[in-house]
């Protein structure tokens, strides 16, 4: 089992793996929306991934839908007790972790396919591709030179699980084992619930068709979550003209304070 420990696998391979090349495309999918507008009344959104299996006939098929949000690095610290005080460890940086992740399937993923496919395709919260490149080192192991291992060694899995657990708690990561429903013989749908704090950016909705534990067809659609209107104006100004934004903001606050004192003095 040593060989399958995630730290031993170089992250670059995970990132650049080609999606499975199906012999013929048996999947046809789309989203109910491919653009979500985040305005001041945004309280989360629901998007439906739907699709059809072409030429399903009588073959048993499993569908896996994975929606993942924009990738960003995350820093995780661990509280450790030193002389009775709970202090922070050095932060560990996880790179490439998606800001949102949902895996829905027509039945539990471990019944659909095996470990290696799940790991390769990133199916399921525990198989999301992310790594801690700043903490890797190259060593010689079992007589093999230049093996990339994680300097966290055996703790790596624990750290990684902590990331997914925290994200699951805030409903940003989820596994939905029966989230894909066949509404008709060959027609399926899966609902995506985006919480209000889902990150802004481009999402990818990927759909796999599995037969006998192997991916036979693949389809992907993009979903853009973007701020619009006043929200967008504020965000853009804050990032593109920070001096102007800061000075105007501070002056508005002072002005409102002055105005309030006028009103109260007269009242």
């Amino acid at each position: 089992m040593v060989a399958v420990l995630p730290p031993v696998i170089p992250p670059a391979i995970i990132q650049t793996l080609p999606t499975p090349a199906p012999s013929s495309n048996l999947l046809s999918t789309d989203l109910t929306q491919n653009r979500i507008e985040v305005s001041s009344s945004f309280q989360g959104a629901k998007v439906v991934v739907y699709g059809a299996v072409v030429e399903s006939r009588d073959q048993p098929s499993d569908i896996v839908v994975v929606v993942s949000g924009p990738r960003a690095s995350m820093r995780l610290i661990r509280k450790v007790q030193v002389a009775g005080l709970w202090l922070n460890s050095r932060p560990v940086v996880f790179e490439g972790a998606p800001g949102f992740y949902m895996a829905a399937s027509s039945q539990p993923l471990d019944k659909i396919t095996g470990f290696s496919n799940r790991r390769r395709l990133g199916l399921g919260v525990d198989y999301i591709a992310m790594d801690t490149p700043r903490d890797t080192k190259i060593v010689t192991r079992y007589g093999v030179r230049d093996v990339v291992v994680n300097s966290l060694e055996d703790d790596y899995l624990e750290w990684r699980q902590a990331v997914t657990r925290l994200k699951q708690k805030s409903s940003l990561y989820s596994d939905n084992p029966f989230g894909v429903r066949f509404v008709d013989r060959n027609l399926f749908r899966a609902e995506i619930d985006l919480p209000s704090d889902a990150p802004i950016g481009t999402y990818k909705a990927e759909v796999w068709l599995f037969r006998d534990g192997e991916p036979v067809s693949y389809s992907a659609k993009l979903l853009r979550v973007e701020k619009v209107g006043f929200e967008r104006f504020i965000y853009d100004t804050a990032h593109r003209r920070p001096w102007l934004y800061g000075i105007v903001s501070a002056l508005i606050c002072i002005g409102l304070g002055l105005g309030a004192s006028r009103i109260f003095r007269r009242g």
Binding site: S73, M74, R75, I77, R78, V80, W86, L87, V93, V163
Partner: peptide, 16 residues
């Protein structure tokens, strides 16, 4: 006192 109380969750995500 938060320094002396055992944390409920030892892992914390911090802003990048």
């Amino acid at each position: 006192l938060s320094l002396f109380v055992p944390p409920q969750n030892p892992f914390v995500l911090v802003p990048t």
